[in-house]
Deep mutational scan, measured.
Amino acid sequence: GTEIELESKNGQREHYTATSEDEARKIIEKAVRRGIKRIELRGASEQLIRDMQEIAKQIGLQYRTDGSL
């Protein structure tokens, strides 16, 4: 699965493990709508990382991946 670590603007951290790319995408989209400061992805697919970079650029988000592409 993909591990997703979120940090909201007030510094609250949340951790999710998505079993599918679809689920990961839903978690990320929800977080973005809620207003999130930072997202870290571990074990994400190349496609998901590309999507994440696109989203991050659009809304000026900090993100990090573990680089295991």
Rank of each mutant, 00 (worst) to 15 (best):
R13E: 03
D66F: 03
E21Q: 06
A56C: 11
I27Y: 11
Q58E: 11
I59W: 15
I4P: 00
I4W: 01
K9M: 13
M52R: 00
K57F: 08
I59L: 15
E7W: 14
E14M: 12
A18C: 13
E29I: 09
Q53V: 14
I28A: 01
G67A: 05
I55N: 01
S8W: 15
R33Q: 13
I59E: 14
R64T: 14
G1V: 14
H15L: 15
S68W: 14
K37W: 12
E46Q: 11
K26Q: 12
Q12M: 09
E23Q: 08
E29H: 09
Q62F: 13
Q62H: 14
M52Y: 03
A56D: 01
R25W: 10
E5A: 10
E29F: 14
Q58H: 06
A24R: 00
K26S: 12
L61N: 04
K37P: 03
G1D: 09
E14P: 00
I49N: 06
G67V: 08
V32D: 00
G67Y: 02
A24Y: 02
T19L: 13
I59Y: 15
L61A: 08
S20V: 02
K26N: 09
Q47Y: 05
Y63P: 08
I59H: 15
Q12N: 08
T2S: 03
I39V: 06
I27W: 10
K26A: 12
R64W: 15
G67C: 15
S8M: 14
K37G: 04
E7T: 13
G35L: 04
L61S: 03
E7F: 13
Q12E: 13
M52N: 00
E21T: 07
K26D: 11
T19V: 13
K9A: 10
G60Y: 08
I28M: 06
R25E: 00
E40S: 14
I49R: 07
E54Y: 08
E40D: 06
R64Q: 15
E7Y: 13
A18T: 10
S8H: 14
R13K: 09
Q53D: 14
V32F: 15
T17D: 05
E3S: 09
E21M: 06
T2I: 10
M52W: 03
I39E: 00
G43K: 05
R25F: 07
N10V: 05
G11H: 03
A18R: 03
S45H: 02
I28Y: 02
E29C: 15
E3A: 06
D66K: 03
K9Y: 14
A31P: 00
I27L: 05
G11N: 03
I59N: 15
G35D: 05
T65L: 05
Q53L: 11
R13A: 04
